[in-house]
């Protein structure tokens, strides 16, 4: 071929489907995660709580098991109610925060630190697809920890207790599902935004904890010093806890959340403000991602 004909020619063959392209990122990410023994063990350990919960549900409905354990009266000891499922969601979400703090910061920062982002975006792969691909890693992992075992437990309880229980408590299932998704979106975006802005992975992971736990302490400090409840707006766990309680119970509140996600009675702030706080946080994360996820960076 003559030299003058050796110019740039775009690829003209068939492209893989958009979904297949999107799944390339999680595929490689999971391979890498699988190599970390600590993360694998930690991830498996997070299923301990749902497993114990499943055993409790099973034993509660198995008369012979109760007789065998000589605890026939234990049926009423642990009630399978809103507190049971809210605690499950709270505990699993707290574990997922730890997982996100370990996994999340490694998602974007290496691409940015090594100028690898252009290699993604030079392909038929948009910025949104890149973020969604990176996010899917956390979404899949946290889903496996939160709403999937939650709904399986709900189905197990419904199967053993009867259809009427399921019909009466359908709000628990919807609360589990939507409550988990609120948490998943929030944590995933937070982890990715911090990963994009803080190049040092441990610092980004530490910031996840800071945003979650230190903001709670900060909120409690504002409340104590200013003798108010509005400091709770600064606490991510409070905002999530309040919305969860609303999703699980509606207006007839009997609990104040679970694990770290609590809205103490007497310290309530209107639900609309909680939603506004979370939406503001999500929008801030999206803005942070939009600022950093660019094919070319202008260095001044």
């Amino acid at each position: 071929m003559a030299v003058y004909k050796k110019t740039y020619r775009p690829y003209e063959g068939a492209l893989t489907g958009p979904l297949a392209r999107l799944l390339v990122i999680p595929r490689y990410a999971f391979e890498e995660l699988h190599r970390s023994r600590f993360l694998s063990v930690f991830f498996l350990a997070t299923f301990l709580y749902p497993l114990i919960s499943a055993l409790i549900i099973y034993v509660q409905h198995n008369t012979s098991a109760l007789q065998l354990l000589n605890v026939q009266n234990a049926r009423g000891l642990i009630s399978i109610n809103v507190t049971f499922f809210l605690s499950l969601l709270g505990w699993q979400s707290a574990m997922s925060l730890f997982l996100a703090a370990f996994v999340g910061p490694g998602q974007i920062s290496p691409d940015l630190a090594n100028n690898g982002l252009s290699l993604y975006l030079a392909r038929p792969f948009s910025r949104v697809e890149y973020v969604l691909g990176k996010m899917s890693v956390l979404v899949i992992l946290i889903s496996l920890m939160t709403w999937i075992p939650g709904l399986l437990l709900f189905l197990l309880q419904g199967y053993l207790e009867g259809w009427s229980w399921m019909a009466d408590n359908v709000r628990l299932a919807s609360g589990l599902f939507f409550g988990s998704w609120i948490w998943i979106v929030l944590v995933s975006l937070l982890a990715l935004a911090l990963s994009a802005w803080v190049k040092w992975k441990p610092a980004a992971g530490a910031l996840m904890f800071v945003l979650f736990f230190v903001t709670s302490a900060f909120a409690a400090t504002i409340n104590a010093v200013q003798r108010t409840h509005w400091g709770n707006l600064a606490s991510v766990s409070y905002l999530v806890g309040t919305i969860w309680v609303q999703l699980f119970e509606g207006a007839n509140k009997t609990t104040n959340g679970a694990v770290f996600f609590r809205s103490p009675i007497g310290e309530e702030i209107p639900l609309g403000y909680c939603w506004a706080g979370l939406i503001a946080l999500v929008l801030m994360c999206l803005y942070m991602l939009a600022r950093k996820i660019r094919g070319a960076e202008v260095v001044r």
Binding site: A206, F209, V210, F213, A217, F218, T221, A224, V225
Partner: peptide, 14 residues
């Protein structure tokens, strides 16, 4: 309370 819950558990630690 601020010192124990915010400084010691939060800002000093992190």
């Amino acid at each position: 309370a601020m010192f124990v819950w915010f400084f010691m558990r939060g800002s000093l630690f992190f």
